[in-house]
């Protein structure tokens, strides 16, 4: 039986690992930012402060708790104490970012105002970039260098196409031309692509007009799901067979006499012909309602009237209460 729990544990562990990989913080982007906020987006206290928008480009939920926002990456990968201008994103329900969602952080150097208020203000910074760093403090998830003039302009800067960047260039510390730019409209907590929006339907019709792509993907997913169940059932089969063999072997080893008896018992289990015939006849009689025991008897004889307490009137009468 222990082996069954071993397999269950393996499957659960596999799920946990898959879920962990599914929630990859690599998919996060610093999608849009504003430093000189005069009369635009206000925080929950009605203040106009610098802000940055994080975008989850993935199609799954990503937990951003523990990641760092900063305007000074000098402490990156050094370990040890957390540098002063690093803001550790605290635990909060909203930190589980759903697929393709946006989250705003205020860069107002007021962390006591709540979990969405960072401990630095880029307007007072020596650098002109904002970075997002992984929870272990070693990986640069995204960094956006903004023009210095952004501090004096009431405009937003960010990805022209939501979170789309060239991964190769990013690894080399470069950016493709036109990837980041001033944005035409300020769009906190929503898409930067403000042009003509195409519906999911139209996009599907445009990209896959005959539905062949979707059919292939869908059939692949159906097969994957059922193949996973197939593998699980194969494991069931294997474990059951092994458990049966093991228990049989143990029984035989402990009590050979018992094993012999059980073997004899197995032989006795085989049903012979006459028994089959008897069972078959009984079933036939039963289903054909030809059973020989009737619940009632039909007779021409006068039935004798037996005594019955049901007929005794005094038993049905209410008794006097006891004193």
């Amino acid at each position: 039986m222990k082996s069954i729990y071993k397999y269950i544990f393996t499957v659960v562990a596999l799920f946990a690992v898959t879920a962990t990989f599914g929630q990859s913080v690599d998919d996060l982007r610093l999608n849009e930012m504003m430093i000189k906020n005069v009369d635009n987006y206000a925080d929950e206290y009605g203040r106009h402060v610098p802000w940055v928008e994080i975008f989850n480009t993935a199609y799954n939920t990503v937990n951003i708790t523990g990641c760092y926002l900063t305007d000074d990456t000098t402490g990156l990968a050094k370990g040890g104490e957390i540098p002063t201008r690093w803001y550790r994103i605290p635990t909060d329900q909203k930190m589980y970012m759903p697929q393709r969602s946006f989250l705003i952080f205020y860069l107002d150097n007021s962390p006591l105002y709540g979990p969405y208020h960072a401990n630095f203000n880029p307007a007072e910074s020596k650098t002109h970039y904002i970075a997002l760093i992984s929870a272990n403090g070693k990986e640069l998830l995204d960094i956006v260098e903004y023009p210095v003039e952004l501090r004096d302009t009431a405009r937003t800067f960010g990805y022209v196409k939501d979170g789309v960047r060239d991964p190769k260039a990013f690894k080399q510390g470069k950016r493709e031309a036109g990837e980041l730019d001033y944005l035409g409209e300020f769009t906190p907590a929503s898409s930067n692509e403000t042009g003509e929006k195409i519906s999911k339907q139209d996009k599907l019709k445009r990209d896959d007009p005959y539905g062949i792509g979707m059919a292939i993907i869908s059939m692949a997913v159906v097969f994957t799901a059922l193949i996973m169940i197939y593998i699980m059932l194969k494991i069931f089969n294997y474990v059951t067979r092994r458990a049966t063999q093991k228990s049989k072997a143990q029984e035989q080893a402990v009590t050979p006499a018992k094993a012999m008896a059980s073997k004899a018992g197995e032989e006795d289990d085989t049903v012979d012909g006459p028994t089959c015939a008897a069972i078959g006849t009984a079933l036939h009689l039963h289903f054909g309602s030809m059973h020989d025991e009737e619940s009632e008897v039909i007779t021409i004889n006068m039935p004798s009237k037996h005594y019955s307490p049901w007929a005794q009137k005094e038993l049905t009468m209410k008794r006097n209460p006891r004193r």
Binding site: M219, F223, A225, I227, I229, Y230
Partner: peptide
Amino acid sequence: NPKLILIGA
């Protein structure tokens, strides 16, 4: 008979 599941797919 787990292989029968693939027919369902």
